[in-house]
Simulated scan of single mutants.
Amino acid sequence: MRAPSLRQLEALMAVIEGGTVSRAAEIMRISQPAASKLIRDLEADTGLELFERESGRLVPTGRGMRLYEEVQRIFGGVHQLTRAVEAIRREERGHLVIGAMPALSGMFLSRVLSGFLARYPDVFISVETRSSQFLSEAVLLRRLDLALVVNSHEHPSVTVEHLQAPPMVVIMPHGHRLSDKSEITPEDLKDEPFIALGESSRTRNLVDAAFRRYNLQPKVVIESTTIHNVGELVAAGLGLTIADPLSLEFAANRVTARPFRPTQIYDYHIIRPVRARNSSLVSAFVEEVHAASLKVQLIV
């Protein structure tokens, strides 16, 4: 017995699925005699009677149907493999998996994505918003192509790049009496109702340290665990806060911002695997991150 060729097996499937040799020839884009020859050669090579001839038509025998079912299963696996290969190629060519800590996952990340997709409209992007620790581990495991985090640790398999974020600012409701000042110090804020993040947050630590230089403490009236809540409370007129402009950009049209002295910088980092897939796309995305940080919408 000779091993059947793929073309012969295609002819078998085409005849059974098309119902006639002529239809099979159309499906395979060959002549009818060529299709008939493929079937005859298949029967000769396998030593099996695969079709019965009835009134000029080919009717599959039981053996023919059994072989058809096996071929169908094998071809199905081949097609599935082909789809998997295409999916891999598509991902390698145009798929990025991005991570961002919650503070940067709002308007700032939206501006980054808008700028990037304007340049690469065919790239598919997945975004994961989690804690910096979780994202750092995900980059280390190469589950993420890039992540925006704070307090990143050095590792030989990870590239860490500082994000040039603008200095922290005082955020206050529109029309507040301090909005007339060109810059604001802890002395100006000592009696003002203050909306603070939790004591474990880096922002809170920076703010408290700045006040200690003046032997002062902020007059905290409300404490919240998320920067989004803090921004909404300030916009509602319940107090002031100090934050980096990137994290409070969503409230830009509803609050007033003024420079805070002494200058405080919130250290964001861009991390990515050293041997990142889609390295050119990742580099382009990093460019957009830096560009967006220089065009923060929270006007001071």
Rank of each mutant, 00 (worst) to 15 (best):
I39R: 03
R66M: 13
L135K: 04
P102D: 07
A118P: 04
L96M: 01
R73P: 04
L148F: 04
A44W: 11
A100M: 09
A84T: 14
Q32Y: 00
A25G: 04
E128M: 12
E26W: 00
G77K: 11
S114E: 14
A25H: 05
M101D: 09
A25F: 01
A87C: 12
G76V: 04
R83T: 11
G64I: 05
S114I: 05
F75D: 00
A118T: 10
E17G: 02
I125A: 06
S114Q: 12
H153A: 14
G19K: 00
A147M: 07
D122L: 08
A44L: 15
A35S: 09
L117C: 11
L109K: 00
L67E: 00
H153G: 10
F134S: 14
P33K: 01
R63Q: 11
R89F: 08
G47V: 01
V97H: 14
R130C: 10
L58S: 07
R130I: 04
R63F: 02
R57M: 10
V139M: 07
E54H: 10
V21L: 15
E91P: 00
D122C: 04
G106Q: 06
E69C: 06
R57N: 06
E49D: 11
V123R: 05
L48S: 09
Q133W: 06
S136R: 03
E17V: 04
A84V: 12
E92T: 09
V127L: 12
E92D: 12
G77S: 06
E69W: 03
T129E: 09
K37M: 15
Q32M: 01
S36P: 01
D41G: 05
R66S: 15
E54R: 13
L58E: 00
M28W: 02
R89H: 11
F108P: 04
G106C: 03
L140Q: 07
A24M: 01
G94I: 03
E52Q: 15
E17C: 03
P121W: 02
L81I: 10
V21Q: 12
S36A: 12
